[in-house]
Design a protein around this nucleic acid. Structure first.
Lengths: 138, 138
DNA sequence: TGAACTATTGTAAAAACTTGCAATAAGGAT
DNA sequence: ATCCTTATTGCAAGTTTTTACAATAGTTCA
């Protein structure tokens, strides 16, 4: 399945346009697998499409995150990283060594229902980051 | 209780020095009550101490957060805000209007224990941010 | 297919944040 | 009180991120 054939219909269904910039950025994220910082996305995407500019990278990543095509995760000091949103998972990050672990959404489900009923908010099950110390750093 | 008499011993106990820059920044955060962005801290702190510089603000906020005197919270798009760390609470933020709600730590306690035993990590109970839609924006 | 509409991108400049290094000043010892 | 050590700050320059607006290029419709 190519990036275009997969993502173009999703964008179209939401009323947005398919552009080569968006396809390139999605392709880079898919190819990379894990998290990438905006800078990393920029560097990799420029290889495939040298005309890409920084504002486009930032705007597109934010746009894709808002529309659920990618996941924006907070990792450490106010830094934000992006990855393809394949399934719901969360992160647990060691604040000493920075090593991160993925957490399934399932164990959070009960808490989510509880918070939703007590606050009236409808929670995004998209992403939460927990910080702590990994076994090696304790 | 003044800022100096409260925070100076805390810093000293951790082996750090009491400086007027740190006291000014803590004073600003205490006086403000809620979250402040680094820029807001800078603007307010400069009124009390015009010689303060931006690098000092950023470094000091990060330093204070690392040492538990202030809390660094992620609010929205990769932005980080700081507040005095009075008690453990978490945030629930509406991704549409940005309105935030504080959540007690208690309801998360069970989840924390569960995650700690399944991952081996020792979790900071300091801060987690949930995103969702508030009742008004749904 | 071509024209029209407007979402999206590029440009240029500003604002926010970071880094390395030299100067300063807090805290301990004399 | 003064000196010494070194943590902390300021400075200057760099990098990252944002903004406003004009130019471009998807998409729809005739």
């Amino acid at each position: 399945m190519t990036c275009v054939s997969e993502y173009s219909p999703q964008l179209h269904a939401l009323g947005f346009r398919t552009t080569s910039q968006r396809m390139t950025i999605l392709h880079v994220l898919r190819h990379a697998g894990g998290h990438l910082s905006p800078k990393q996305v920029y560097d990799l995407a420029c290889r495939e499409m040298p005309s890409l500019t920084e504002p486009t990278i930032y705007r597109t990543l934010e746009f894709l995150a808002e529309n659920g095509l990618v996941l924006a995760a907070h990792v450490g000091n106010g830094k934000i990283v992006y990855e393809l949103s394949n399934g719901n998972h969360h992160h647990l990050i060691c604040r000493n060594c920075g090593r991160s672990l993925e957490i399934e959404h399932a164990p959070l489900q009960k808490l989510y229902r509880q918070l939703e009923s007590s606050t009236g908010y409808k929670l995004d099950s998209s992403h939460v980051t927990f910080f702590g110390l990994c076994p090696g750093c304790q």
